[in-house]
């Protein structure tokens, strides 16, 4: 495309930008807003990446509290309502002799969301305050949370199946509770937070090299 491109130096220092849609690069000066190849929006780094990540992370932190405190499902059995939180549901799985299934649900609905929030917050903090943590370790952590992120939807799918199966009116029914909606918002917020974070910022924040 042009002769001035130097391999082994960052695109940022050479004013080059990569299109996230079609993976073609172009120069910031000649095409400041749109990719010349596919005409989608383009910039040197994802715009307001840290702000968006923080906003979504804070949303997730707020909603994770009701998601764990309020009942996620109500079991209506013989006209009596039994509420179940995420944690009490896991405990009852252990009690009924299914530790394996309990572990899957525990990992998907408690460990994964918490781990995502903590890891993303640490990476975002270290980028912001130039902590100079090992960039490769940060990237591995990021890829890990990006990959496991979608597994936290597991509990929502399980609820949808249980609700459909137990539909016998006052005799035996299951209804979703307030926590189910909060948990959905946590999942959407963490998935979008990981998606709005630009991994190249990890290297931009490295001061000594």
């Amino acid at each position: 495309m042009n002769k001035n491109v130097v391999v082994g130096k960052t695109g940022l220092s050479q004013g080059l930008q990569l299109c996230k849609v079609c993976s073609h690069y172009s120069e910031q000066i000649t095409d400041p807003t749109h990719c010349p190849t596919c005409l989608n929006k383009i910039s040197l780094r994802k715009k307001n990446s840290l702000q968006k990540t923080w906003a979504l992370l804070i949303t997730a932190i707020i909603f994770i509290i009701p998601a764990n405190l309020y009942p996620i499902t109500y079991l209506l059995k013989n006209s009596t309502l039994y509420p179940d939180t995420i944690f009490s549901g896991i405990l009852s799985l252990v009690d009924s002799g299914m530790p394996g299934i309990a572990l899957i649900v525990f990992v998907a609905s408690i460990v994964v969301p918490l781990l995502k929030i903590i890891a993303l917050a640490v990476i975002a903090f270290s980028v912001q305050n130039e902590w100079n943590l090992d960039p490769k370790k940060q990237l591995i952590a990021f890829y890990l949370i990006d990959w496991i992120g979608k597994w936290s939807v597991l509990d929502l799918f399980v609820i949808s199946i249980m609700v459909a199966v137990f539909d016998k009116g006052h005799l035996l029914s299951i209804y979703p509770g307030l926590a189910a909606t909060s948990f959905t918002l946590v999942v959407i917020a963490t998935l979008s937070a990981a998606n709005s974070f630009d991994t190249r910022l990890i290297w931009d924040a490295q001061t000594d090299e």
Binding site: I159, V163, A164, D167, P176, A180, T181, T184
Partner: peptide, 30 residues
């Protein structure tokens, strides 16, 4: 499932559609 003397069948769409009234966000996500 065979429960209380009745056999009931469930498909993939039913579960989500039944929650539209009680928890629309969850239903939409699913």
């Amino acid at each position: 499932i065979h429960l209380l003397g009745i056999t009931e069948e469930t498909n993939l769409l039913q579960g989500a559609l039944m929650m539209v009234d009680s928890a629309p966000v969850v239903a939409f996500m699913v």
